[in-house]
């Protein structure tokens, strides 16, 4: 079945300077109800991988280094 890649902006932004996922932190990934955050295999930092956000904010509130910002998804902003 032929498929196309669908490009989309995602609402969760991770500041790679502040993110300590490369040191083993998994807080934002653990608390996300939708499980949309993953580790980037190249940088070792967290990022939003699936565009399935409820903009509920545990990832931002629970981040120990204030690296995560949750924006309102573009479609409803």
């Amino acid at each position: 079945m032929p498929v196309a890649n669908h490009k989309t902006t995602v609402p969760v932004v991770v500041d790679e300077e502040k993110c300590i996922a490369d040191k083993g932190c998994r807080v934002c990934i653990d608390v996300c109800p939708l499980d949309v955050l993953l580790i980037d295999e190249v940088t070792g930092k967290a990022h939003m991988h699936y565009d399935e956000c409820w903009y509920c904010m545990p990832c931002e509130k629970d981040c120990p280094t204030d690296a995560v910002t949750v924006n309102i998804p573009y479609l409803l902003s």
Partner: peptide
């Protein structure tokens, strides 16, 4: 489907 068209923009937690 929420009127915004965003699948996860639901009233309930989408889980």
């Amino acid at each position: 489907l929420p009127t915004s068209g965003y699948l996860y923009g639901t009233y309930e937690n989408p889980t």
